[in-house]
Each structure stands twice: as C-alpha cells, then as structure tokens.
C-alpha cells in the first residue's frame, strides 16, 4: 500500500469527504437545535393560548408540558443521531485516512 504524506492528506478524497460531511452534519444539527429551542421560546412568548390548551377536558395538564419535556428529549435525540452517524460513517472514514498515512 502506498503511504500518503501528511501534507497530502488535505487533497485525499476520503479526507475531503470526511471533513465536509462532518461540517454539514454539525451545522445541520446545530441549526435544528437552534430552531427547536428558539421555536419553543417563540411559542412561550407569542403562543400562550396554544400552550395553555388542556390535553384532555377532564384533566388539567396543558399541551405546553409535553412540548417543554419534548424539547428536552428531542435535544437528547439529536445528540444520539450525531453519535450514530459519527460511529457508523465518520469513524470509518477516519480509519481509512489513518491507514493511508500509515498510522
């Protein structure tokens, strides 16, 4: 196997793929998280009647409660998605690049 020099890594297609994919995933998930949280804050500020609706007529819990808890849970799910992607795709590419350089 031909060994790449460290300087050549930058032009290696696998490295380019790895860095651009990582940036894309990171930025997409960051934007999703921002939309999630600030969407929630927007609802709290402007959508009080919506959040104040009762979930069932004879109960008291408002729809705002699962939405707030859902914001917490979904944030965690996003980190899970990233981990899953990184373990499956990112680490594979990293391994490939490191093999090319010869560790």
């Amino acid at each position: 196997m031909s060994k790449l020099k460290k300087e050549d890594i930058l032009n290696d297609p696998d490295f380019i793929k790895l860095s651009s994919q990582k940036n894309t995933i990171s930025i997409i998930l960051t934007i999703l998280e921002l939309v999630l949280y600030f969407g929630f804050i927007y609802l709290v500020a402007e959508g009080k009647p919506f959040l104040s609706q009762k979930m069932s007529p004879d109960g008291a819990a408002t729809i705002g409660i699962p939405i707030a808890v859902g914001t917490i849970l979904l944030s965690w799910v996003f980190t899970g998605i990233y981990i899953w992607w990184a373990n499956v795709k990112y680490d594979e590419l990293v391994k490939k690049v490191i093999e090319k350089v010869g560790g």
Partner: peptide, 21 residues
C-alpha cells in the same frame, strides 16, 4: 409552575451545541 419548566429547558440546550461544534 410552568415558568419554572421553561427555565429548565434553557439549561439543557447548550449540550447538543457542545457536541456538534
């Protein structure tokens, strides 16, 4: 009540950002 819940959500949302960026 509910306002306390809003507050607690804000304390969590920085963590995904740490992971992604």
């Amino acid at each position: 009540g509910y306002d306390g819940l809003i507050y607690s959500v804000g304390w969590l949302v920085g963590w995904p950002i740490i992971m992604f960026l």
